[in-house]
Design a binder for these strands. Structure first.
Lengths: 136, 136
DNA sequence: CTGCATCCGCAATGATACTG
DNA sequence: CAGTATCATTGCGGATGCAG
């Protein structure tokens, strides 16, 4: 995979953002979307709009704080929409935006991988641990 | 943790893991692969095997501790292979496994998204912040 | 019902120094 | 060169209480 360039400057860097550069803004973005709660929230909303309480019930183990906090981040980044109905007890509905939906395609692939390859990973872990034990 | 009995809304419970269940092992797995360093390391190795030092140089901002630690996790999970050459100064080479490569397909999509949609996200942030300011 | 503020423990992360 | 070990710090993330 050598590209024929000398290494220090990495001239083959693409013109758009480069996540491998520590200072690149895309790096922050990566850190944000490579987050457990972000992934689960986006994938839930990709299946249809939900209210706050419904989201909390659907995503096992999330605290009210993390949900609220992550939702706000996602709204700020334009990945989800927030709609308030000023009814008697206030009702807030969250919906995914086209931008958010464009991300869920890849995200779903990651989840798909985790759910289907889980067995392979656990087998690998057992083998690794057994090997480590055998060294004593 | 899968009963498939008392939930009328889910006629057919999937046989594989469900990341939305807090106790499901896939949830831990998700938390592990939804990690900044994991993504960057796997994608680097997907382009070819690398030695420890080369990896550290290629992934901006990673500390030797995080690199070493994440590499060990990935090896344990069967996503990468570790090869030691007992030469004068010892040389260790890391390579992606077929299992690991199967994950990088989706991972690359996430990076692709971050690098290309970065502008949209930043625009959304500006708009959001402006709106927030206007409310005072 | 929704969601913000505060307190706080703990785990993750980084800097440094040391070993094979 | 490739790690491990230790220490200091940060910030995640949970619990609780309050407000709109």
């Amino acid at each position: 995979m050598h590209d024929g360039s000398s290494d220090p400057a990495l001239p083959e860097t693409p013109l758009r953002g480069n996540v491998f550069a520590a200072a690149c803004p895309t790096r922050q973005l990566l850190d944000r979307i490579a987050d457990k709660w972000t992934v689960l929230i986006l994938l839930t909303l990709a299946n249809g709009s939900q209210r706050f309480g419904a989201l909390k019930r659907h995503i096992g183990g999330i605290s009210q704080k993390m949900l609220s906090q992550t939702l706000k981040s996602l709204e700020r980044d334009g990945l989800i929409d927030r709609t308030v109905e000023h009814t008697a007890p206030i009702a807030v509905t969250y919906a995914i935006t086209p931008l958010g939906r464009s991300l869920t395609v890849s995200l779903r692939g990651v989840i798909e991988w985790a759910e289907t390859r889980m067995g392979d990973v656990f087998d690998a872990r057992s083998a690794f641990d057994a090997r480590a034990n055998a060294e004593h």
